[in-house]
């Protein structure tokens, strides 16, 4: 195990975050604050309670998830895509580090950033709305699992992408719609029965529902199913990464 290697990658990636502090942390916090102002304060005041929770409080876990998914993916995908783009990936490939160590370094750093961001958003939300956290341990567990899983997913995208457009396309065309339709702003019980069924194919529903449960103890789907779904998705991402490193796809000729 090349621990110095893992540490070097991790610290290098974290340094990138501090260097680009504005776009790493400030901009997602600003965006989320705008959501709280618009949906929480302005529109939320005219909305009824959902499952006995005020609308402004109801959207807190969902909005946090929204940022968490987006930032995990963009951090991790950019982290591994950029060395491919600049050509400095040669060093990573010629270094005595195993694929697992590379993944731990890059994904670990991306997930760390996302968790820091998540906690900052949570603190920011406090300025706009009241919320409680009924199951703090589960809340942190969901936070960590989601950050890790979607950083893995971002890493896959970063390995797959061979131009900047591809780097953007999955987050824009797939993740954005899935998060907006994933119950961040509403309970899926509010949908017509047919769309409730369709929604169950959206993995984000399970994340948001489980996460909201850790706050208020109410969930759209069983919390056990939520946790299971995250692990399934994590497993898919890990398999994809394993395959990429094994076959050398878009990494080695």
């Amino acid at each position: 195990m090349n621990l110095y290697g893992v540490r070097a990658i991790y610290l290098f990636e974290m340094a990138r975050m501090w260097r680009t502090l504005m776009q790493s942390l400030a901009s997602p916090i600003l965006t989320t604050s705008l959501y709280f102002v618009v949906f929480g304060a302005a529109i939320g005041s005219r909305m009824g309670e959902i499952d006995g929770i005020s609308y402004a409080s109801f959207i807190v876990p969902g909005l946090l998830m929204l940022s968490l998914l987006g930032e995990s993916i963009s951090n991790a995908s950019f982290g591994i895509y950029f060395p491919k783009f600049s050509g400095s990936i040669y060093e990573l490939l010629s270094a005595p580090v195993s694929p697992i160590e590379i993944v731990v370094g890059y994904v670990g750093a991306a997930a760390t950033k996302s968790v820091i961001l998540g906690l900052l958003i949570l603190a920011t939300a406090r300025l706009f709305v009241d919320y409680e956290i009924m199951h703090p341990v589960w809340m942190v567990t969901f936070l960590l699992l989601t950050a890790t899983t979607f950083s893995l997913f971002g890493f896959v995208i970063g390995l797959w992408a061979d131009d900047f457009q591809k780097l953007q396309i999955i987050p824009m065309m797939v993740i954005m719609p899935l998060t907006f339709l994933g119950g961040a702003f509403y309970s899926i019980n509010m949908l017509p029965p047919f769309w409730q069924k369709v929604t169950l194919f959206n993995p984000v529903v399970y994340l948001v529902s489980g996460f909201r449960w850790s706050f208020y103890g109410v969930a759209d789907v069983n919390v056990v199913v939520s946790v299971a779904m995250i692990f399934v998705f994590m497993l898919i991402c890990l398999s994809a990464i394993w395959w990429i490193f094994k076959s050398g796809y878009r990494l080695k000729s």
């Binding site: 090349n2 110095y4 290697g5 540490r7 070097a8 290098f12 060093e91 270094a95 005595p96 580090v97």
Partner: peptide, 10 residues
């Protein structure tokens, strides 16, 4: 520093 670490050296 990154390169040295990557190659497993403190």
């Amino acid at each position: 520093k990154f390169s040295r670490g990557l190659f497993g050296k403190p």
